[in-house]
Design a protein around this nucleic acid. Sequence first.
DNA 1: CTGAAAGCGCTTACAG
DNA 2: CTGAAAGCGCTTACAG
Lengths: 342, 342
Amino acid sequence: MGKPTVHDIAKEAGVSLATVDRVLNSRPGVREKTVDRVREAVERLGYVRDINAANLARQRRYRFVFLLPEGQSQFLESLEAAVDEAASGLIDWRCELEVIRATFRDPLALTAVERRILSTGTDGVAIMGHETPLIRDMIARLKARGLTVVALVTDQPNSERDHFIGIDNMAAGRTAGVLMGRFLGERAGRVAVIVNSTQSRDMVDRRAGFEEVMASRFPHIEALPSLEGRDDRDRVATVLEACIDRQGPLIGIYCAGAGTRGVTRVVKERGLAGQVIVVAHELTPHCREALEDGTVDVVINQNVGHIVRSAVRVLRAKSDEAEIIESQEKIRIEIAIRENLS
Amino acid sequence: MGKPTVHDIAKEAGVSLATVDRVLNSRPGVREKTVDRVREAVERLGYVRDINAANLARQRRYRFVFLLPEGQSQFLESLEAAVDEAASGLIDWRCELEVIRATFRDPLALTAVERRILSTGTDGVAIMGHETPLIRDMIARLKARGLTVVALVTDQPNSERDHFIGIDNMAAGRTAGVLMGRFLGERAGRVAVIVNSTQSRDMVDRRAGFEEVMASRFPHIEALPSLEGRDDRDRVATVLEACIDRQGPLIGIYCAGAGTRGVTRVVKERGLAGQVIVVAHELTPHCREALEDGTVDVVINQNVGHIVRSAVRVLRAKSDEAEIIESQEKIRIEIAIRENLS
DNA sequence: CTGAAAGCGCTTACAG
DNA sequence: CTGAAAGCGCTTACAG
């Protein structure tokens, strides 16, 4: 007889469609006895509801906002592009995605954004940003208004976010460390480490993972104190050059944060390509080029497409109070070298 | 007024719903002039059809078969598991997946499978198997009956398959080669290469890619002639041991095919872990363990979950004569080391 | 060549 | 606390 439908359940339980629906969606106002009858019918017939039909009837649309920081990094751009791409593929999913860029330091701007989010009937928000009290409080207010909130790329562990979508940065740092050490072979010397900010949690984690591996497995390699690039390629170039001038030749550069262009500029200008092993993060167009031309040796990547799709799946599931398949939502630490560039 | 629906189109074009439907689905029996009127209305209102509602009305169900070779390799198992997992996640997609294992050498068995496929109202088939005339012909017959067919993991380039879903094996071989060379550092010596069969296209491609890199970038490393493991771990162990006994110590082992257990057994028994760089394919449970305990250094992987989901998306799209987003269906060559194991 | 009506599986007011 | 009826956006016989 094909998959059972609400009609079959209704008949089997001897109730109306409306009652079946109430039970199925655990809405109040049904006698316990009736609830049981329906539940039993569901069991007996092995009913599983057609969520698409349900959404159609309910005219359910999901509105999700991706709240990203201001700034023109290629990673942010590719993330934004991934949202756009997902958006077009997700019309079947009845999801509408919007990207909002915000200055997270500015309380007024943030309030405006929050108002915007709340006034447009948003179901959920994916937030990427450094961990600050301002953001933590905003998340709390959004949650209080019933929205679902996921942290994207960098976690907000002390907030009320429903989920974190991104990689394990400590493991990413270890991965970078092992590849650096392996690629260097027997060579001993100093490696520069560049982070966005020594305050930022993801950078701290990457640095820690990197350091752990260096200390335990490659003691002949010295990881120098972190240089702060502040998401700015020019500053990255400046601090890196200063470091080289101060410390003498490097054997490796680990760029844990943004501004890889600053690194490649210095590597090229000083003719270090091939002399120095360079490990960077995020497979942006520029990093691809750098892999192609040999300026960068390894890129540790988190796939922005996966991140966005995972965020949407999780936001949708949480909005429906449905289950999520944890294993599917794990974001992998990808390793890219010239040869496996898709 | 929200997204336009068929009703809006009908009103705008001054025709009935049935006619709109006919035009939308390019069914025959509509005057050209009427077609144009509807098309214009669609344009004007920016209509995009709700595929879920369409499928609901049409009571459309998709039945897809995954036809895999007999054999108990962990890769096949994980592929099968991925199909099962996808199946449960795909009820929303109205897809029903079945795995059939077949002996591709046996024409009678194959005919039985084919009959089974055709008699159960299957919409499409994903086939993984070596390129043989038997398979080529079966694909032709399935196509003739209107099914969609995709080749999985190993391509069937001379058949009428609609699509190939898997990695570029030449690039995979190059990736293996570069990592082998990099991890070996300055060490010179011989590397064993193990393939399933020297006849099999994917193995030929991987070997070629590996060799190319060795010759051009690591001339101090010699890739020995391919050993045939025939998908059998015992045989892999035997040929590898014979190779070592004959050639003397190796510095590396590239296991391009199945039977990695044979490799790890020899590596362990002979105490070669850490002495020899081992690069293998497919992140099976055994390979994970081997990465964890250091018996294997690198695993080149194709994500079975992605492969299966991609296959389903493509089969579904082709069945509906819909577009597929090529970029999304590209299967990446993943690199796994101990540190980035998810 | 075209249209009115019923139906896909579910939900939602509204009435009782 | 429960049900009959209409409707979500689309498709499908059936009639003309």
